[in-house]
């Protein structure tokens, strides 16, 4: 486990509610290197909660327990809130679904990217600005100087998400968690944004956790896929072998998608099985 970028063991998260605690994540363990790993599941599967739990971004009333959450040899659970702030950004960064809510509406995007850099590096303002512009260029914004001075409401959804990615990547994190980063975008723009992510990940040797509901997209984009249901990991498969999977949930998810070249027959619906939630804790995965 020492050569893993991130290793999570036995992660459990539950939220208290008037009708008793709700287990959002149950006994989740996985380990990853500098690769693209996808976490796929339907709503309520615990995929987003897993991502946030790693960064300790859950609300304080959430109960989180884990055997360990080790990032580059340090157990994140043992860190103070102050040390954790150092990890967020420079160590692990996160991109969320809607840039409109993640960007400060009253500051120019350039300033926000620059500040993201300055938090983690003590440099002159000029240098920080240069880094920010460079980053805007890296996410393939054609006229970075111009975009630098725009406010978030002046950019389109696709550009907003590129700016978010620029802002999250400018501190040069080792691992990026992207939670449905492109779900609000049109298909072609979505793919273009993913291509940027893909290139940056391979150039910088970063790890990427890509959280999504879109199994087909994840299988064409990531190296490995973690499939979650009801807070548990159903299975971990290599992306190119997804269609050979024999797990009934994975098969169900794949079959219920309408296909362009399919016939008009009713789509097979997913039959859920409570036994899936009772399977023994899954073994730690090794690359």
């Amino acid at each position: 486990m020492d050569n893993h970028l991130l290793s999570v063991k036995n992660l459990c998260v539950s939220f208290p509610s008037p009708k008793g605690a709700v287990d959002a994540v149950r006994h989740v363990s996985f380990a990853m290197g500098r690769e693209k790993i996808g976490i796929v599941g339907e709503s309520g599967s615990g995929k987003s909660v897993t991502g946030r739990a790693v960064l300790r971004l859950l609300p304080p009333y959430a109960r989180v327990t884990a055997g360990h959450i080790i990032y580059q040899g340090r157990d994140l659970q043992s860190l103070s809130e102050k040390e954790m702030r150092g990890i967020r950004g420079r160590g692990i960064s996160m991109v969320m679904q809607d840039p409109k809510y993640s960007l400060n509406p009253v500051r120019t995007v350039g300033r926000q990217i620059r500040e993201a850099y300055e938090i983690n590096h003590t440099v002159s303002r000029h240098e920080a600005r240069r880094q920010a512009l460079e980053m805007l260029e890296a996410v393939r914004i054609r006229n970075p100087e111009q975009v630098y001075h725009l406010y978030p409401h002046e950019v389109s959804g696709g550009m907003g998400q590129r700016i978010m990615i620029a802002m999250m990547l400018v501190p040069k994190p080792g691992l990026l968690i992207a939670d449905e980063p492109t779900s609000a975008l049109d298909v072609t723009v979505q793919l273009q944004v993913l291509a940027i992510l893909d290139d940056l990940v391979s150039q910088r040797g970063m790890g990427l956790i890509f959280i999504s509901h879109d199994l087909e997209l994840v299988s064409s984009f990531c190296d490995r896929i973690i499939i979650m249901y009801g807070g548990r990991i159903m299975e971990v498969v290599a992306a190119d072998r997804l269609h050979e999977s024999s797990h009934p949930y994975t098969r169900g998810l794949l079959n219920c998608l309408p296909k362009i070249d399919g016939d008009r027959k009713p789509l097979p619906t997913l039959q859920r099985d409570d036994a899936w939630l009772e399977q023994p804790e899954n073994q730690e995965e090794v690359i």
């Binding site: 339907e42 709503s43 509901h213 199994l215 169900g252 998810l253 219920c256 998608l257 309408p258 009713p266 789509l267 097979p268 619906t269 997913l270």
Partner: peptide, 11 residues
């Protein structure tokens, strides 16, 4: 909707 629910509604 989730894909499994989408299938049910489309049907």
């Amino acid at each position: 909707l989730d894909v499994s629910i989408q299938a049910e509604v489309l049907n």
